[in-house]
């Protein structure tokens, strides 16, 4: 009989990611609603110390695959460890964060178990003891309610959506080692990780995003967007027009063919608000639009609208934010 919620607790470089705390916290809330236990699985090498932290977020059993071949991420090595944990825990629900790793790992693990996976979930519901979820489709132009036809129910959770709970350091968990059969013969291996500029915040993880559109007029002006993002401690994004023009890298594109984001604050500078762009950011909690065209569609969805020249308003804003931060 299936029992409990199992969370894949993603770590990189020996630390949990922000999205991991969110997944553990949501897993704990679901486990409480179901009246079932929470367990976690941690995969890597030299990561045993993280088991305590998973316990602080409510896991009562922590499966730990701490073996040298898993020091760097590999799809098949991690799938083996994750499916071993699922088979050991026999959960009714499995959760992972919809991160780069989660999106690579989860569908393959689900396929191995021949079960369905709901991607990028933004809401969970328990009805009659069963999980249903809501997930955006068409980059957020519509939302689908999804039921699971097979057990366990498996979902990846969109980062920045589910709140992280406060850890309780008095909680403890039973630690169960797994992964002993994983030997060094993995199909695909990560041979190197090329880090982006240090301190750069990933769009999908940022709670504040400042984006620039065609209104910035050229790549030489993108620093205005970056400076404001830096002053606010956020990430810098862009519209498709700016990416397609080659002004900034595609990894910064927000919209239907870029990233779908839901930060607390989204500041759109010189972005008119094409439906393609709105799809990717309209689930942001607060939206600010700065645009010189008072008729720009972006104003229809903005909580705060500034009709003005971004070349004047954005530097003023950066200056005032920086001044405030210094006090």
């Amino acid at each position: 009989m299936a029992n409990g919620v199992l969370v894949f607790a993603e770590q990189r470089d020996g630390a949990f990611k922000k999205a991991t705390y969110e997944a553990l916290s949501e897993g704990h809330r679901l486990a409480e609603k179901l009246g079932q236990p929470l367990s976690a699985v941690i995969i890597g090498s030299g990561i045993r110390h993280l088991a305590n932290e998973a316990a602080h977020y409510g896991a009562t059993t922590v499966y730990v695959a701490d073996v040298a071949p898993l020091a760097k991420y590999s799809t098949d090595g991690y799938v083996k460890a994750l499916t071993e944990a699922i088979q050991a825990a026999q959960p009714s629900v499995v959760l992972a964060a919809a991160t780069a790793m989660g999106k690579d790992l989860a569908p393959r693990a689900a396929a191995r178990l021949d079960i369905g996976l709901a991607s990028d979930v933004v809401e969970t519901h328990i009805e009659n003891g069963a999980l249903t979820v809501t997930r955006p489709v068409y980059a957020g132009k519509a939302f689908a309610t999804v039921a699971f036809q097979r057990s366990p129910a498996f979902a990846t959770l969109r980062p920045n959506v589910f709140p992280a709970a406060s850890p309780d350091a008095s909680r403890t968990a039973e630690v169960k080692p797994i992964g002993a059969t994983i030997v060094d013969a993995l199909q695909a291996r990560v041979t190197d990780i090329l880090a982006a500029a240090k301190g750069k915040i990933e769009l999908t993880e940022a709670s504040i995003i400042v984006s620039g559109g065609r209104g910035i007029k050229g790549p030489e002006n993108y620093y205005l967007i970056q400076n404001l993002a830096d002053a606010l401690g956020g990430a810098a994004g862009a519209s498709r027009a700016v990416v397609d023009a080659g002004w900034v890298d595609h990894s910064r594109q927000v919209g239907q063919t870029g990233k779908t984001v839901s930060p607390t604050l989204y500041i759109a500078c010189g972005i008119s608000g094409a439906i393609q762009h709105l799809a990717g950011m309209s689930s942001s909690k607060f939206i600010v639009a700065i645009n010189k065209d008072p008729e720009a569609p972006i104003f229809k969805i903005a909580d705060y609208g500034i009709v003005g020249d971004l070349f004047e308003v954005v530097p003023k804003l950066t200056e005032q934010v920086s001044a405030m931060r210094q006090n």
């Binding site: 489709v137 519509a142 689908a144 999804v146 699971f148 097979r150 309209s282 609208g305 020249d309 005032q320």
Partner: peptide, 29 residues
């Protein structure tokens, strides 16, 4: 099938909020 879509809905429409007027310095403040 692994999943069944039981409902599809459009997101609630967002309302336009307020406009902030003034010179650029006032707008920023």
């Amino acid at each position: 099938a692994g999943l069944a879509v039981t409902a599809l809905r459009l997101p609630p429409p967002r309302q336009a909020g307020r406009r902030i007027a003034g010179d650029p310095g006032q707008q920023a403040a």
